[in-house]
């Protein structure tokens, strides 16, 4: 655990379930790492109940045994825990990713509340899969992988999401990635380039391009001038479902855009809009063919 964190955090050890439940009720918001092999089914049930009451990022780091899987299944069904199984050569990097990119529970709740109408129009399988993506940050890496994980054809998935009012499957995945990075960007000192690579982006520039499209800001600006969860959720929801202009960000700093006078931030915003709109229309056209 210490090695995976690599100096980006500290570890406190809780020795019993009672201590764990007390910790869950505390106002702290740190990530909890749990080995389900060490808890009984009854304990797992109480942990799940407390996690529903006090949402908290949870990483379940477990070996593959019957005891661990029995408790693990219960936690998977009733919480938004993220699972990593021991035994693979790169489990350390997976654990590092899960620990450093812990999702922000209030942001996930706020975003799902805004998207509730659209989510209700989705088939239950995809709805629940998407909800867990935004809550635990464990999202498939591509539309193809999301379709496979939802046990449906890629085109059916695209159609379902379009009918529910979502702009595109890719945008849903990008939004889930950005949501999972929000906490690391705003509250940690983890280098932004490292966060970008853990999210699967080639460089920080690529992450910034996605963040500009989804939240009208870059990772660096978000770190120095964090948006509130509600604001961030508004931005993301607007980009995910609406095709009209997203809400304007109220920033105390003036924005400078190429070929525009200092302070006229709207120019760049419109440019991004028109680009994304054209890209979306092109994709629809190729899909129709």
């Amino acid at each position: 655990m210490h090695t995976a964190l690599a100096g980006h955090g500290t570890v406190d050890v809780l020795l019993g379930v009672r201590e764990l439940l007390a910790e869950l009720a505390s106002p702290r918001d740190e990530c909890i790492v749990l080995d389900p092999a060490l808890v009984t089914l009854a304990d797992a049930e109480s942990i799940a109940a407390w996690l529903t009451k006090y949402p908290r990022p949870v990483v379940v780091f477990s070996s593959v045994t019957t005891a661990a899987l029995e408790s693990g299944v219960l936690l998977a069904q009733r919480t938004s825990a993220r699972f990593i199984f021991r035994g693979t050569p790169n489990e350390r990097s997976a654990l590092e990713c899960a620990l450093l990119l812990t999702p922000d529970a209030p942001l996930g709740v706020a975003l799902l509340a805004i998207l509730e109408d659209n989510m209700n129009r989705l088939p239950s399988g995809i709805r629940n899969r998407m909800a867990s993506m935004f809550q635990n940050g464990d999202c498939p890496s591509s539309p193809k992988a999301l379709a496979a994980a939802s046990a449906m054809a890629r085109r059916s998935l695209d159609r379902c999401l379009a009918e529910a009012g979502f702009v595109s499957t890719r945008k849903v995945i990008e939004a889930a990635r950005v949501t999972s990075a929000y906490r690391a960007i705003t509250t940690s000192r983890t280098p932004l380039g490292h966060i970008a690579s853990m999210l699967g982006y080639k460089s920080q520039r690529t992450l910034d391009a996605q963040m500009t499209l989804l939240m009208s800001t870059t990772s660096g600006k978000l770190r120095t001038d964090p948006l509130s969860c509600a604001e961030a959720a508004d931005f993301l929801a607007a980009r995910l479902i609406a095709r009209e202009t997203p809400p304007e960000r109220k920033s105390p700093y003036p924005r400078r855009a190429h070929g525009s006078a200092p302070g006229s931030g709207m120019t760049s915003l419109k440019l991004v809009d028109s680009k994304s709109h054209i890209r979306h229309r092109r994709r629809t056209a190729s899909g129709d063919r």
């Binding site: 593959v64 899987l69 693990g72 299944v73 998977a76 699972f83 021991r86 035994g87 629940n128 899969r129």
Partner: peptide, 23 residues
């Protein structure tokens, strides 16, 4: 062998399958 009975379980994250693949 211990993971196989959990193949279809584990909710939307399908941890049963992940456990089998890891094993």
């Amino acid at each position: 062998v211990q993971a196989l009975p959990f193949w279809d379980t584990g909710g939307y994250t399908r941890i049963g399958r992940r456990a089998v693949y890891t094993a």
